[in-house]
């Protein structure tokens, strides 16, 4: 049942990826400016410029260019960076691990800490803890991440010098970027977990679980948490895109190598193949994220499994 669901759900990725590739291609090519400006030296003739344009196929109609790009892509060829003069695939595979580590850690941080805090705030009997959690959730969902990042750099990196201000050397360089991206996520996940737990606790079947003589702890772990995780998984799947977007800016702020930094630089130079490659990787990650989210939901909820297959 679940396998069938995964199969059909994956099929849907095909039309989506094609349309996304078109959109990415168009956006990149319709930007004003072109990469050749960054290549030609001062004083070179218009003929040189023309030769370069022909070399990279930039004189062809857009749909021909798109076709060339996409058919090469199907053979695993991301093309050659025009300004950086290296295979795009190399550039990406060099930078991707940095972004994946950052994004993955930020994701794990916001989901684990968020779920724990949300559960505590929904189940605690202590009024002080409850109040504290409410304050934290409010703070986390209203304070913008970049502002927090600056505060943290000032305090932890500049003032206390616990962590490096920038760069990607060693694990301690990850702490501030992960906190920056993850903080808003923690608050969001905590809020969703809390609301979902409070909601499901009011359901009829919970009364009957108590009537069976089960302890509050058993009910929470075996019955309430799985229900509360349904909306949390949805939120987390959507969050993947957000976290990658966050990684792009945070890499820039903290001067960390990664897909984000590569993308921003390539954008400045109108290095089409690199920009396209990076955007496509990001889009792919978002699509995979939603796919995993949907599959996780189907794995958890038999009603969804049946409905959609």
């Amino acid at each position: 049942m679940l396998l069938r669901y995964i199969f059909y759900r994956s099929l849907m990725l095909i039309p989506v990826s094609i349309s996304i590739s078109v959109v990415i291609f168009l956006i990149v090519h319709l930007l004003p400016g072109d990469p050749i400006d960054n290549l030609i030296r001062v004083g070179s003739s218009p003929d040189d410029r023309l030769a370069l344009i022909t070399k990279y196929g930039l004189d062809q109609p857009l749909f021909v260019q798109y076709y060339r790009w996409i058919s090469a892509m199907f053979q695993g060829d991301f093309g050659e960076a025009i300004v950086l003069r290296r295979p795009v695939a190399d550039l990406i595979s060099q930078n991707l691990p940095y972004s994946l580590t950052l994004g993955g850690l930020a994701f794990a941080f916001s989901s684990i800490v968020g779920i724990i805090l949300g559960t505590i705030s929904a189940t605690t009997r202590s009024a002080i803890v409850k109040q504290f959690m409410r304050g934290f959730i409010l703070l986390g969902s209203t304070v913008p991440g970049f502002w927090l990042a600056l505060l943290m750099i000032l305090f932890f990196a500049v003032q206390l010098q616990w962590f490096p201000v920038s760069g990607a050397k060693g694990w301690d360089s990850l702490v501030l970027p992960v906190l920056t991206i993850g903080f808003g996520g923690v608050a969001l996940v905590a809020r969703v977990t809390r609301v979902a737990l409070l909601d499901v606790r009011r359901e009829d079947f919970v009364t009957l679980l108590h009537a069976k003589g089960l302890s509050m702890r058993t009910i929470l772990v075996r019955h309430l948490m799985p229900h509360a995780m349904l909306p949390v998984v949805t939120i987390l799947a959507l969050r993947i895109g957000w976290i990658l977007g966050g990684a792009v800016t945070v890499e820039f702020v903290f001067g960390r190598p990664g897909l984000g930094l590569l993308l921003i630089r390539a954008l400045g130079q109108r290095d089409y193949p690199v920009v396209q490659g990076c955007l496509l990787m990001l889009a792919l990650a978002v699509m995979l994220g939603t796919l995993i989210g949907d599959v996780a939901q189907a794995a958890m909820d038999p009603r969804i499994r049946e409905e959609k297959t």
Partner: peptide
């Protein structure tokens, strides 16, 4: 509860854990 006192409630549609 469950051992010596049993309970049956009104709406069977919502009285079992759907998951």
């Amino acid at each position: 509860r469950g051992r010596r006192l049993g309970l049956i409630t009104q709406n069977p549609m919502t009285s079992l854990d759907p998951l």
